[in-house]
Amino acid sequence: MSAKKNMILISLIIGFTFTSIAQPIEISVSGTPTFEPSLIRISEAGNDFTNNTIESSTQSFISISAINFWDRLSKQFGYRVTAYKTDINMHPSLILEIKRGSNRHGHFNKSRIYHGRNWQPVTNTPVYFFSGSAPTYNIPVSYRIRNISVLIPADDFETTVIFTVYEN
């Protein structure tokens, strides 16, 4: 084998080693949070909405897995998930909060998840949500909206929550 081929081979080995160390992981989100319109009501004239905080009646589900087959098979990777939102139509007084549930399905029961069990606001800049290790599927995420009031313009509001997973 020529010296040139040797160098290229070495480079590729180094390259694959780096990408292997990187252990690319992916996140997928399924399900859509639903807010029941009946939650936003007024008991009597003169009052504000009865509930100024409403919680979604349905959840979305996050799954974390490794792209690489061998990483998927092993549990040898850690990750952290951040969350932020991009507003399509959102009022600045409204606060969107999320929290995760615990009844996820791990990979051979070896997965671990830390943090994210308490309500936390989602802003337009990424903030840490939770972390974990090993592939984990269907982590439930609940949503709630705070500060609902008749003082906020009546409208259909929409925002997108973006979850990003990083390797640890």
Binding site: V29, G31, F35, I54, K85, D156, E158, V161, T164
Partner: peptide, 20 residues
């Protein structure tokens, strides 16, 4: 290779809709 390693991240999203 390092470039790919640096981009070892992935996004997922959920749409949140509600009405006042």
């Amino acid at each position: 290779a390092m470039h790919f390693a640096a981009y070892a991240q992935s996004d997922g999203q959920a749409d949140v809709l509600f009405s006042i």
